[in-house]
């Protein structure tokens, strides 16, 4: 019988996390998933879920966040990968089965998966 989770556990989690939060902010990767109606209808939620699963499996600490429609509806699901000092890379039509390769090559090996890229934004 698994132990029933209680919100109070967040108090302990906070203490654990506060110890390493400063390093994460500077070195971290952020993955941004488009979650407007267009994204949702194209399967963005399942793509997000696949990203969360892959990060957990590989024990990679990356922030994941969602945004509304950015106007490239035909390319949804859209996934941006933002890393400190690197241009922000936008991948288009990202289905859940593409997620492991995207994370393997971009996050682990540091190589952008060029064939899936639909846009780039220089870091400011």
């Amino acid at each position: 019988m698994p132990q029933i989770k209680s919100l109070d556990e967040l108090r302990n989690l906070r203490q654990q996390v506060e110890r390493d939060i400063s390093t994460r902010r500077h070195t971290g990767t952020t993955i941004i998933v488009g979650m407007g109606t267009c994204g949702i209808a194209a399967g963005a939620r399942d793509t997000m879920h696949a990203i969360l699963e892959e990060l957990r499996k590989r024990e990679i600490d990356a922030n994941v966040t969602t945004v509304g429609c950015i106007g490239m509806c035909a390319k949804e699901p859209l996934v941006d990968v933002e890393q400190a000092g690197q241009p922000r890379v936008t991948y288009g039509n990202v289905t859940p089965d593409m997620v492991p390769r995207m994370i393997e090559e971009h996050l682990v090996k540091g190589q952008v998966v060029e064939e899936w890229v639909v846009g780039r934004l220089q870091s400011s």
């Binding site: 989770k5 919100l7 109070d8 556990e9 967040l10 108090r11 989690l13 906070r14 654990q16 996390v17 506060e18 939060i21 969360l52 990060l55 957990r56 600490d61 990356a62 922030n63 994941v64 966040t65």
Partner: peptide
């Protein structure tokens, strides 16, 4: 309960 730690923090998110 989390104070400054955001809900989007990987450990919090998984929890």
């Amino acid at each position: 309960l989390l104070g400054d730690v955001p809900l989007t923090h990987p450990a919090v998110r998984e929890w």
